[in-house]
């Protein structure tokens, strides 16, 4: 298989970083993801929207007092895509 066959949605540093973090936890807030990936709020927000549009994650927007709170969670579809991506990577490396 060729590198171009890897899921383009996951084959990007920030989106893959976010998905790997969400794989390991039950749910995570925007601030946690921002801190762990060391990204800017603007870029992270755009990438989260892309993952959400693809159905890989769910984004819940609530309020903590007066502050807006964005909580992200990986979906079953996202989990499957992530597993397929890792399997594809393994195949590629094993060639």
């Amino acid at each position: 298989m060729a590198l171009k066959d890897l899921d383009p949605l996951l084959h990007s540093q920030l989106r893959l970083g976010v998905m790997s973090l969400l794989m390991s936890v039950e749910s995570a807030e925007f601030t946690f993801l921002k801190e762990k990936t060391n990204s800017t709020a603007g870029n992270l927000s755009v990438q989260l929207d892309k993952l959400s549009e693809a159905g890989y994650i769910t984004i819940e927007k609530t309020f903590k007092g007066k502050k807006p709170l964005t909580t992200c969670k990986i979906t079953k579809h996202g989990l499957k895509a992530f597993e397929e991506y890792v399997n594809a990577l393994k195949q590629y490396i094993g060639k």
């Binding site: 590198l3 084959h11 540093q13 920030l14 970083g17 060391n38 990204s39 800017t40 990577l89 490396i93």
Partner: peptide, 15 residues
């Protein structure tokens, strides 16, 4: 800072 996109990521880096 993970700001760059697809351009530099190879499979080993992904893992």
């Amino acid at each position: 800072d993970m700001e760059k996109q697809n351009d530099t990521l190879n499979p080993h880096q992904s893992l």
